Simulated assay, not measured.
Amino acid sequence: MNTSSHYKLKHFIPWTRRKIYKMFLLSIVPTTLYYFFDCKWLAIPWVPVALLGTAAAFISGFRNTQTYSRTWEARQIYGSIINSSRAFGIMIRDFIRDVDSTKEAELHKELIYRHFSWLTVLRFQLRESKSWENVKTKSYNREYLKYYKVPEWESSLEDELKPFLNEEEIKYILTVNNKSTQILAMQSEQLKELNKGGFVTDYYYAVIENQLKDLYDQQGKCERIKNFPYPRQFSSINLYFTNVLCLLMPLGFIGEFSKLTEKFGENIIWLTIPFSIIIGWVFLVLEQIGESTENPFEGSANDIPITQITRNIEIDLREMLGEQDLPTPILATNNIIM
């Protein structure tokens, strides 16, 4: 997530520079052929270009609206995880009781620390790369990684779990397929044993189990966004429309500027190049921005900051346990926070 007021041009222009190169090439070739080799047939009416531009703008607008909705939904889900985690911490602290205060504190810590492990495993799962994601496959996104780090790519899950789970639990979790699901199952199993042992009443047991169900719901919503890409048919048609428009746009400009040669001279044809670059860049960048927004957990600079959110939840729940030695909040690097 970018925490500044806007992306700076010194970052944005290099990120999109290939679009500028592309439009320069697409415009200079037909302009040169028209001017030097008298290829008058390259001049086409502006009407079909305008109609195609309208269609491309509509499709781009539709795509960007939908991809933004995916990102905003992902942020809402993690907002619910924040609230549910705080509620879970309060319930564990206040509902599970024992005459031995030391044992009671140990139970609270064990359950809440296991919740930290669930948050950790979930963010690692969400940051796994999928075939349709773009951060590692597109060169301009790989270049932009120099401005920030994705924590889940810099460390191992096993090391991250060591402060929260014992060796036996870590060994088990690393062998299962859906690790976050099994951690919640472990929570439920321990709560059942605590209920049998009289550490938590039947009513409170049911309330905490319902809270686990809510965490499962939020996890499932995250998995739905992560595992189901923006429909490829809409993504493809936007790409095709935009590229066809960029191909025809210089020809349309040549047609329009050729009408002005008697008044302003033949050199006016060269205005085709800057006009094509500017307008084509706008359409191509809209397509690129939509692409960079459609996967809110992929590890891009526009991701939902799930690492920061997880750390903030950990700080809140550690304070509920009365701990003083708290982890430091995660801060932005070059205005990018993960």
Rank of each mutant, 00 (worst) to 15 (best):
L122E: 00
Q308L: 05
E158F: 05
E169L: 04
F275S: 11
F24K: 00
I336K: 04
Y240N: 07
G53F: 03
T242N: 11
N195A: 14
T31E: 05
I173K: 06
L251R: 02
I96A: 01
T293K: 14
W41C: 07
Q211T: 02
Q182L: 14
P250S: 04
A332W: 13
S235P: 00
P250L: 04
A74E: 06
K221L: 14
L271F: 15
A74D: 06
G265A: 13
D98M: 05
L251V: 06
I20D: 03
Y68N: 12
N166S: 11
Q324Y: 08
S27K: 05
Q125Y: 09
T120E: 10
K136W: 04
P327S: 09
T137Q: 00
Q190N: 13
Y34V: 10
Q288T: 14
C246G: 13
Y144L: 13
N83C: 06
K263R: 14
A74I: 07
Y21V: 02
P48A: 10
T307L: 07
W281L: 06
L165T: 03
L122R: 01
K10E: 10
Y172Q: 10
P151K: 02
D100I: 05
V176Y: 03
Y7P: 00
F297S: 01
L52S: 04
G220V: 05
E223T: 11
T261D: 01
L284T: 02
N267C: 05
A301N: 08
T310Q: 11
P45S: 07
I208K: 10
R127N: 08
Q233V: 14
Q288K: 12
L247S: 04
N2F: 12
D214L: 15
E104T: 09
Q125K: 09
P274T: 10
W281V: 02
R127K: 14
E262V: 14
R86Y: 08
R311G: 02
Y205M: 06
D94H: 07
E294N: 13
R18A: 00
E104N: 07
D303L: 14
I208N: 09
I90T: 08
Y78K: 05
E294Y: 05
M1H: 08
K109V: 05
P45L: 08
L326F: 12
K136M: 06
G53T: 02
S258L: 13
D303N: 13
K19Y: 02
N312S: 15
F12S: 03
T307F: 15
S292M: 03
L251P: 02
K103A: 08
